[in-house]
Design a binder for these strands. Structure first.
Length: 852
RNA sequence: GGGCGCGUAGCUCAGUGGGAGAGCGCUCGCUUCACACGCGAGAGGUCGCUGGUUCGAAACCAGCCGUGCCCACCA
């Protein structure tokens, strides 16, 4: 260490992350440590594909948690000498990105329609070039060791090839098809969306009862509906086949009020005879159930609400009204006509678009679908056979249950920003051509009048290819050979189906192997008040602000510490604990680095306390490593904290200070050895402070980021030393507590004597007792220590303390005796447990007897 | 309607059969030559309720109460 750096370390008594993080990160990038060579096999290497953040996004706490976990494992494996690749990139996020640019246009008083498709898409690309890298820069602030040289985008040229190849592959197998079918229409984005993008919310609507007269009789069928406006598209009335009330009517007709259409009365088991009157109006064009019933009975499918959410020409007088307006008008008309039988409030689950927040309008439209059964089958097996392991285990079942019930996926979206579906229609012969690149001529009629499909693909269609498309698939690249399948995936459970399941299916179908071996489903960090963290609720906490305030290491520690298997509220205290640990490490390192003799770091135990700390250190290394490997990040970092604070700083450093100041070589070597291993052990979770401190370490031969990760050295485990020192620590604490309780001045050194073997030197020093006391009267006993009378002791306080101790012992003795006098306990409990209880009782009795 | 969680110290959370733990907060003491964003000591809990299993339950089982999430085509 040169003089200038030494002075800096001497004078800076606090760890200041802001000063250090940017510089350290730049060193890592310069070193190229995050850009592994593409060679070797996936089994030798370690790779992770980041869940690609939306290109419109800003780093939020979910990313920060997810990133902290991935980085911990990537760094640990990199330190183990494996080629560690963390694939980074962003998702084009069709709807979100289109919305951002449309908003920009609106501010200029323009619309995308005015601009036209080509110019609009170009405009989105310009937006992406300017703002799209923001979130990538934010990941750097976290210290994420992604390969920033291999950044990908789900719409870049190579990715487009992968998407087209997959689409054509699925089409050629007959999985992808085009059909007129009931879809979730989102009037907000004016696009179809998939079932997974719909969220059901509880809504209180009015349930209307409407009389439908039965043709040729004076009877009416009263139907119940929350959507009277859809009656304009009714094509039947259904009753349950077993419902005797209506058995005679099945086969005859109703007359639709306001419209006059004749509606057949049909029987279908879907109808619940106990709901309402047991008669159900059937609107195949606007209700998913009715659609199914309609197809079963061959009913006409009338569409009365258009893609704009307004009543179309089929709606007669109501044409042009929004669905909500039409509801009021229809109800008024029914009331006038005397057909409205009743109205009551009704609470039920209603589908809303996850994207636009608008109420879903189920309607029939021509869309592209992907049949999932064949793709799901091997993806189910892979998880059943643990070729993909999902942890915590309960999510395995959730995945399997969903996969076994999987339904066709509507993959087309009526947007402009996204992967335009690689389908061309021939204007001359009506041929449909699916191709990986735009065809010039129709293969059927040789015509050149080819028009490409207007729709784009669901963003999740391209996301599903992420782990292999980013590695160069469909080409047989070095990256793909070296890093696919990836090692593991961390994810929030909300995208288990949307993304994870689809990656498994596509990975098996296309590159031919599962995309990752382990999936860790992490918990959700909620806002401080327990609500969801959300930008729209204003409950979000900005990770960048937290990094500014407390440092990236503190945030990473805090997030890992607070995240266990269940959802938790964001805890400022945990982040502060991380900041405290960084500061503690910094100061402990200063103590060691500025005072150690110039020796080679090595375990050189000279006393029992040295064997103790080495054993504790190696035990901690083994334990923390095991926890990281099983994704138990919370306990891993808490254990690091406990070791650094309690074992290392509270005890060992205090114990060895005199030897360290004297320049003793054994303890210097041991401390430097321990420091090296502690810094390496903590580097995956707290990379900045550990890298910075490592730069002062005398044996540093390069950056810590590629230094060897410690492997627990079993020969240094020493249970005997651990037990001996633990006992001396306990004695020290008892002595300190005794002093405090009898009110001895903090500085006073109390004379005492010890029966039998004298404790280690540090006990007296740290508890401020002098064990060579002679002559004076013993006034109290603390374990083997006889406290001798002295001017610093207040006799009344000592006596009071003695009294309290007797009471404590009496209570303990009673507890133990009660337990041991229970015949069931003595007879049935394991012998060791009974023996332990007897030992305790014996010790308590002895101590009480000695106290008199 | 089905499924999965959670309810432990003032707060946020660990703890899955053998004497209740952590961090923060609180109280008391300490400017001890790494750190006062520090050190030492302490107070604080009928482990949601009721039953059951067991020699022994915070933990296992059942029911109830409270609370959160996911899935679901009864208008």
């Amino acid at each position: 260490m040169d003089a200038a750096r030494r002075t800096k370390l001497e004078q800076t008594t606090r760890y200041e992350p802001a000063e250090i993080e940017a510089r350290v990160f730049a060193e890592w990038i310069e070193g190229g440590y995050f850009h592994p060579e593409a060679s070797g096999t996936p089994a030798e290497n370690f790779s992770v594909a980041i869940p690609p953040p939306n290109v419109t996004g800003a780093l939020h706490m979910g990313h920060a948690l997810n990133g902290s976990m991935q980085d911990a494992l990537v760094r640990m494996n990199r330190m183990r000498g494996r080629r560690a690749l963390w694939i980074l990139g962003t998702d084009h996020a069709g709807i979100a990105t289109q919305a951002v640019v449309e908003k920009e246009l609106r501010a200029e008083g323009r619309t995308r329609q005015e601009l036209g498709r080509e110019a609009f898409v170009e405009r989105v690309w310009e937006w992406k070039e300017e703002y799209g890298s923001r979130i990538v820069e934010q990941y750097k602030r976290l210290g994420a060791s992604c390969d920033y040289e291999r950044e990908r985008f789900t719409l870049d040229a190579g990715y487009v090839r992968a998407v087209h190849k997959v689409f054509k592959g699925l089409y050629d197998k007959g999985y992808i098809y085009r059909d007129n079918y009931m879809v979730n229409w989102d009037p907000g984005t004016r696009s179809a969306i998939s079932d997974l993008e719909v969220e059901n919310r509880e809504v209180t609507d009015s349930l209307f009862a409407i009389d439908y007269p039965v043709e040729g009789t004076d009877r009416v069928l009263t139907v119940a509906t929350v959507r009277p406006e859809t009656m304009l598209a009714d094509t039947a009335v259904a009753v349950n086949p077993d419902d005797e009330r209506y058995a005679d009517l099945v086969g005859s007709f109703c007359v639709l009020p306001l419209v006059g259409r004749r509606l057949p009365i049909i029987a279908d088991a879907h109808v619940d005879p106990d709901f309402g009157t047991g008669a159900l109006k059937i609107t195949p064009g606007h209700d998913p159930n009715d659609f199914e019933i309609g197809r079963r009975h061959g009913l006409e499918e009338i569409v009365v609400i258009g893609p704009d959410g307004r009543i179309n020409g089929e709606g007669g007088d109501f044409e042009g009204m929004t669905a909500a307006e039409a509801q009021g008008a229809v109800v008024a008309a029914l009331r006038n006509a005397g057909a409205l039988r009743g109205e009551e409030p009704y609470t039920h689950a209603v589908p809303f678009s996850h994207r636009s927040g608008e109420r879903i309008e189920p309607l029939i439209s021509l869309q592209w679908f992907c049949r999932m059964d064949e793709l799901a089958a091997p993806a189910i097996e892979a998880v059943e056979r643990d070729e993909v392991r999902i942890v915590p285990a309960q999510w395995k079942r959730v995945y399997l249950d969903w996969m076994r019930e999987i339904r066709p996926w509507c993959v087309s979206r009526q947007l402009w920003w996204g992967h335009r579906i690689p389908v061309w229609y021939c204007g001359e012969c009506d041929e449909t051509i699916v191709a990986e690149v735009a065809p010039e001529r129709c293969p059927a009629c040789d015509g050149t009048n080819l028009v490409q499909e207007e729709d784009v693909l669901d963003t999740w269609f391209s996301s599903a290819l992420w782990p292999f498309a980013t590695l160069g698939w469909p080409d047989d690249t070095a990256e793909l050979r070296a890093f696919y399948p990836t090692s593991f995936l961390t994810t929030a459970r909300e995208i288990l189906f949307l993304w994870v399941a689809r990656m498994v299916m596509m990975g098996i179908e296309f590159p031919g192997d599962v995309p990752f071996r382990d999936v860790y489903v992490h918990s959700v960090i909620q806002a401080r008040d327990g609500r969801r963290m959300s930008k729209s609720l204003g409950t979000g906490i900005d990770p960048l602000e937290e990094i500014d305030e407390r440092g990236a290491d503190a945030l990473r520690f805090g997030l890992l510490a607070m995240s266990s298997t269940q959802d938790v509220r964001y805890s400022d205290a945990k982040v502060e604990q991380g900041a405290d640990l960084a500061n503690k490490l910094y100061n402990a390192s200063r103590l060691i680095l500025l005072n150690a003799a110039e020796v080679e770091p090595a375990p050189r135990p000279a006393r029992v306390e040295d064997r103790w700390i080495l054993s504790r250190l190696e035990r901690t290394i083994g334990s923390v490593t095991a926890k990281l490997e099983t994704f138990d990040f919370a306990h891993a970092v808490q254990e690091c904290y406990a070791f650094v604070y309690h074992d290392l700083c509270d005890w060992y450093l205090e114990i060895v200070k005199p030897r360290l100041y004297e320049g003793e070589e054994d303890v210097s070597a041991t401390l430097l050895y321990a420091l090296e291993r502690v810094l390496a052990l903590l580097h995956p979770t707290m990379p900045f402070v550990t890298e910075e401190l490592w730069s002062y370490h005398p044996t540093r031969d390069g950056h810590l980021v590629v230094h060897a990760f410690p492997v627990a050295e079993e020969s240094l485990l020493d249970p005997g030393a651990e037990a001996d020192v633990a006992a001396e620590i306990a004695l020290t604490r008892s002595l300190r507590a005794w002093r405090d309780l009898v009110g001895v001045a903090a500085k006073a050194v109390l004379p005492a004597a010890v029966d039998g073997v004298a404790p280690s030197e540090f006990v007296g020093r740290l508890a401020r007792f002098a064990f060579d006391g002679e002559g004076a009267e013993p006034v109290a006993a603390v374990g083997p220590v006889r406290v001798l009378a002295s001017a610093d002791l207040d006799a009344a306080a000592v006596e009071a303390r003695l009294g309290r101790r007797r009471e404590e012992l009496a209570a303990e003795i009673e507890r133990a005796e009660r337990k041991l006098s229970n015949d069931g306990f003595v007879a049935k409990a394991p012998a060791a447990v009974v023996e332990e209880e007897r030992g305790k009782l014996e010790r308590y009795r002895t101590e009480l007897a000695e106290l008199g």
